[in-house]
Design a protein around this nucleic acid. Structure first.
Length: 451
RNA sequence: GUGACCGUAGCUCAACGGUAGAGUCCUGGAUUGUGAUUCCAGUUGUUGCGGGUUCGAAUCCCGUCGGUCACCCCA
């Protein structure tokens, strides 16, 4: 028979061995637990949305995968109007606009789901066509306290601290400050976007290259260098606030932005985020122009090459395409697939058991099946995850299986044990076993598992 | 979308014009009830695909498909 070659689609290639999947699930669990710790509510939205919803925010068409039947029969118009979501923010906007009257505001939601993007994948950069995002957003109705912007870093802090993946830094900037800065340096409104994109590259490119680009993007020659220095100079949070005060631009955007930034810094500290974990950094720019206030970007201190593992910001109106209610919000997105891939690469993942079960019950002699299964039922009733070896195989094979899957404990019983009413409890890591009465296995196993 | 490079066993790679190989992994065994190591044996390929050059092509040429990396953009 002709075989179909088993292979994956480019970019749709993130599937793991069970041991890795358990580690990924752990990352998801930690994320979810911390989101809930701050009162965020879970939602999921369908994988596919109507195309006009997805493109409403001006996403490039080529990024989006549309739905089509293989058979191409035109009897399913409804489905062909759909496409896969490329982020979780647009579906959120649609969701909130549809359910405005049923939701309690400020609406705090989290959502951990896959998204799909038609980009060129580059695994070394953690870029795929299908990947997980873990988003939180706080959506206000007509208004939203600046405290929401200050709380976000404390959630990020909580998540990554709990993940225990090493030192990380949340870099924070303010879009108004940036805009005011550009205004102060006499950058024309229509050049602002391209100038910001250039300034976003200060860490990658040489100062000469940046200065040249800035000038050709319409920055006056006398301002190019001061602007570059303002953005790229290394300073801590206090130094940055000091430097901004010193610029002292008179425009309202700058003054308002600076005041806002100061209050947010104060609040971030009140939320308990240590100065070692966050920093105001004027070099954080973010290409997306719907951000209007605080913007965030988080990276691992020892692994800057991993890039941003979490980013987001404040926006003025989430769902202006769908409703005339003004819905200001703030949100961030953790790129879980990227994070996981890079953590794996850098060996930063803590070792986890390779099986969710703790006990393997070996079955040396199937004539005692009844006893084996009753023992397993008793263990499970006591809350101990237990797998029964169902195949007929020699004991050494069963133990090999146990050690390969990294069970903590193996139970061994055959003719001689059953004759004297006992069972062997084997500590697989310590390679030693002891004998206990068959009707008293739970307590000794619990004891062993506690170690 | 633009450019550079690369496709040989499940995986990592060798052979670079003269019969397609190694390591690893996997399977079985080493006196019948205890996982490591070691030893023995075994399975695995239209050399991505199509065409051309040649007595002869995994190797050279052309095309095609697939992949990797850089740019763009982003998680």
């Amino acid at each position: 028979m002709q075989k179909v070659k088993p292979q994956l689609l480019r970019g749709f290639d993130q599937e793991y061995l069970p041991a890795e999947q358990l580690q990924f699930n752990h990352l998801v669990d930690v994320t979810r637990r911390n989101f809930e710790l701050f009162g965020f509510l879970p939602i999921e939205t369908p994988s596919a949305e109507r195309q006009e919803i997805l493109t409403s925010k001006g996403a490039a068409d080529k990024e989006i995968y549309a739905l089509r039947r293989l058979a191409d029969a035109d009897d399913d118009d409804a489905a062909t109007k759909g496409a896969l979501r490329f982020d979780l923010t647009v579906p959120l906007a649609r969701y909130v606009a549809m359910r405005e009257r049923e939701l309690a505001f400020p609406f705090r939601r989290y959502q951990i789901q896959r998204v799909w993007r038609g980009e060129t994948p580059q695994a070394n950069k953690g870029r795929f066509r299908e990947f997980y995002q873990a988003d939180i957003d706080i959506i206000g109705r007509e208004k939203l306290s600046y405290l929401a912007e200050a709380e976000i870093p404390s959630v990020i802090y909580s998540v990554f601290k709990d993940m225990a993946i090493g030192e990380f830094r949340i870099r924070i900037n303010n879009r108004k400050v940036l805009k005011g800065l550009l205004e102060g340096f006499e950058v024309q409104q229509e050049n602002a976007a391209s100038v910001l994109r250039i300034l976003d590259k200060t860490e990658k490119e040489s100062s000469d290259a940046i200065l040249r680009s800035l000038k050709s993007a319409g920055v006056l020659a006398k301002h190019a260098e001061p602007l570059y220095r303002a953005i790229s100079e290394k300073r801590d949070t206090e130094q940055t606030l000091g430097a901004l005060a010193k610029f002292g631009f008179a425009n309202e955007t700058f003054k308002g932005g600076l005041e806002e930034l100061k209050s947010i810094v104060t609040a971030i500290r009140q939320f308990g985020v240590p100065d070692s974990a966050f920093a105001i950094d004027l070099g954080v720019v973010r290409g997306l122009d719907y951000y209007t206030g605080t913007i965030y970007e988080t990276a691992l201190v020892d692994y800057p090459e991993i890039g941003s593992i979490c980013s987001g910001g404040r926006y003025d109106d989430l769902a202006s395409y769908f409703t005339s209610t003004r819905l200001p919000g703030v949100g961030i997105s953790i790129g879980l697939t990227r994070l996981f891939t890079k953590l794996k690469e850098a060996s930063l993942l803590k070792p986890l058991p390779r099986t969710p079960a703790e006990v393997l019950l070996t079955t040396m002699d199937h004539q005692y099946l009844d006893k084996y299964l009753r023992m397993a039922a008793a263990l499970r009733a006591a809350g101990i995850n237990t797998e029964v070896y169902l195949e007929t195989a020699k004991l050494d094979k069963q133990l090999q299986y146990a050690s390969r899957k990294e069970f903590r404990v193996a139970l061994i019983a055959g003719e001689s044990e059953f004759a004297s009413g006992v069972v062997q409890i084997k500590d697989l890591a310590a390679r030693e076993s002891r004998t206990v009465p068959i009707d008293n296995v739970v307590a000794p196993i619990r004891e062993l598992l506690k170690k």
